[in-house]
């Protein structure tokens, strides 16, 4: 935990040293909220496709954008951080220190995850306070789904980081999975709006189950109500986490044999 906190402190110090960029990152969600609100108002009531909040597209897309940001961050941040460290020449000096792979991965993920949680809170607070959404929320079911989904995406991020260590650029896990997740995972539009043949593909994506469970929890669904999504995500996490850790470890060993660890 102390290693993770050290990474968090370091990443925060670097992030906050670019003051204007940090301020911009905190302001941007407000602009996106405005965009979502007016786009949602223009589209209006879609209760034919959307079950929650009386078919409000604003509520639907606020949840989709806020939680997809947090979850896909788990996938994107790890390979991005590894890539950045390779380019800065900082990866080898870090790996000379006695830290375990799991500790390294969770540590480099923590700060960016926290930033995305702040953004998510801003989105959700706007919907909750300004628009009166989700007043019957069951926080426990939302949090449990979020944890299971984040672990799943973190595992996918570790796979992606393994690709970056071995191949440096052109990582297919991140490019394909992040893209697919955004398009067909139910963040921007309901999965029901997809053609029939695409819906089974959407079920392979953790974001589909995560957003479905989170929306149900926000609508007052209990843990029992979101159990199917929770079980699916837990199974994905149980399968993916050990496989991803093995892949990351294998990639590191391979790069050490090739002598390509610090290359980019």
């Amino acid at each position: 935990m102390s290693v993770a906190l050290a990474y968090f402190r370091r990443d925060f110090q670097i992030w906050s040293s670019y003051r204007l960029a940090a301020l911009w990152q905190l302001v941007t969600p407000f602009m996106l909220i405005g965009l979502i609100y007016f786009a949602g108002e223009a589209i209006g009531d879609r209760s034919d496709l959307i079950k929650e909040e009386n078919g409000s597209y604003v509520a639907f897309i606020l949840v989709g954008v806020a939680f997809a940001d947090v979850l896909l961050g788990g996938l994107n941040n790890l390979p991005q951080q590894i890539h950045d460290q390779q380019r800065l020449g900082m990866l080898e000096p870090t790996l000379v220190a006695p830290i375990r792979n799991l500790s390294l991965l969770t540590s480099i993920w923590l700060f960016r995850f926290s930033l995305s949680l702040v953004r998510m809170t801003m989105f959700m607070a706007f919907g909750f306070i300004a628009l009166g959404f989700w007043h019957s929320v069951d926080p426990s079911s939302v949090i449990l789904i979020l944890i299971a989904a984040e672990i799943t995406y973190l595992a996918l991020g570790a796979f992606s980081a393994a690709f970056v260590i071995l191949f440096k650029e052109g990582d297919p896990v991140r490019l394909a999975y992040a893209g697919f997740s955004t398009v067909i995972g139910g963040a921007i539009f309901p999965v029901d709006a997809l053609p029939d043949w695409m819906e089974p593909i959407a079920l392979l994506i953790p974001l589909t189950h995560a957003l479905s469970g989170i929306r149900e929890g926000l609508d007052g669904g209990s843990i029992a109500d979101v159990a199917p999504q929770l079980i699916t995500l837990t199974i994905m996490a149980v399968v993916l986490v050990p496989a991803a850790l093995y892949a990351f470890s294998w990639a590191l060993q391979r790069a050490k044999r090739e002598g390509s660890l610090g290359q980019y």
């Binding site: 670097i14 040293s17 006695p98």
Partner: peptide, 16 residues
């Protein structure tokens, strides 16, 4: 972008 102290505090944590 960090001071020597901040850099070394980070590395110290990596060594427990």
């Amino acid at each position: 972008r960090l001071s020597a102290v901040d850099n070394l505090m980070f590395y110290a944590a990596l060594y427990g």
